[in-house]
């Protein structure tokens, strides 16, 4: 099931927008054409700006790694590989840069899990990997997000900040994933959706460390 190819002017516009995205955010997204096709230049820009504002706010409140991890999982439950793996990869790079060690959630393993496993199996994998670390807070947030995604109700008024943040992230990616999933192919590329995408040395060191860890297992 392949999406219809966007027209030539749309493709050209998508390339320009991708370039702008790369300049400001450090990466280009492969679904720009689909966003433009769906909402037009103005609609895509205003919606994209709201999304970027939310992502920045989540990052300010929860920190770079956890913000990307939560955004990644909001997309993972929807089945969007581009966004899920891109944000989880960004979280992994941030963790590797800050602590000099690998975070136990491997984006390559998660890609396989997304193709074969159930929600419960993936959550069990996450719990098993994170229980052994000192990341109880992140695990709690991921469980909370999972519960929100399953029940999928509007955030009630006057709830705590974390609940509001998680509802906002879940809703934002429920919107975006309509376009991103439609645009992704069978094996979408893993692009770090953060400024860290430009840090080639960090990415290269991370890749070597991840490959060595995979070999040891």
């Amino acid at each position: 099931m392949n999406p219809a190819a966007p027209s030539l002017p749309l493709r050209a516009l998508a390339r320009i927008m991708s370039g702008v995205n790369w300049l400001f955010y450090g990466y280009s997204v492969p679904f720009m054409g689909e966003l433009l096709r769906s909402y037009g230049l103005r609609g895509a820009s205003t919606r994209g700006a709201a999304l970027a504002e939310l992502a920045q706010l989540v990052e300010r409140e929860l920190g770079e790694r956890d913000a990307h991890m939560l955004i990644g999982f909001a997309s993972l439950w929807n089945g969007c590989m581009i966004c899920a793996l891109g944000h989880i990869y960004a979280a992994n790079l941030a963790h590797f840069r800050d602590r000099g060690e690998l975070f136990p959630l491997d984006e390559v393993e998660l890609r396989r899990a997304m193709q074969t496993a159930t929600d419960a199996e993936i959550l069990a994998y996450v719990e098993e990997r994170l229980t052994a670390t000192d990341d109880a807070r992140l695990l709690e947030l991921l469980r909370h997000l999972y519960a929100i995604k399953r029940a999928d109700t509007a955030a009630p008024d006057a709830v705590d900040r974390d609940t509001e943040l998680l509802h906002a992230v879940a809703s934002a990616y429920d919107w975006l994933n309509h376009c991103t999933i439609y645009a992704e192919g069978e094996e979408p590329p893993v692009i770090a959706y953060s400024q860290l995408n430009r840090h080639y040395r960090l990415r290269s060191r991370y890749a070597r460390a991840r490959a060595a860890a995979t070999q040891r297992r």
Binding site: E53, D174, W175
Partner: peptide, 20 residues
């Protein structure tokens, strides 16, 4: 569903900014 989700995200973003 896409529009409901975006509206919900925008409302929550507004609430979070106000809280901040």
């Amino acid at each position: 569903f896409a529009d409901v989700s975006l509206d919900r995200a925008r409302t929550l973003l507004g609430r979070l900014q106000e809280r901040l």
